[in-house]
Amino acid sequence: MSEEEAVSCARVSSSVAGDPSSETAAPAESSGKQEVTVMSVRVGQKAPDFTAPAYRKGGFTSLKLSDFSGKWVMLCFYPGDFTFV
């Protein structure tokens, strides 16, 4: 499901499948025109797949949403760690 990741100082960032702006280090086009990918989610449609670093039970892993295919998933966003609610 998710593999143990080597811990380094490099900042690992999350990326979304099909969203080029989130892929790592793509050099900006010099045309000055910025492509903005607007993605939207809707019930009844596929959940956007993503890959991101994760922590679980003492270990660091790389998590890919589509690895959970075949299971029910509750995906929860929240403002931040150490917040009050």
Partner: peptide, 28 residues
């Protein structure tokens, strides 16, 4: 990036909104 893809990204605050998604075994 993930928050943006799910419409849960608060650009002005730089945090995620409280979004909750139930995804079925087909990824829907």
């Amino acid at each position: 990036n993930v928050g943006r893809a799910y419409g849960c990204w608060d650009e002005s605050q730089g945090v995620e909104l409280r979004g909750r998604f139930i995804i079925d075994p087909d990824g829907v």
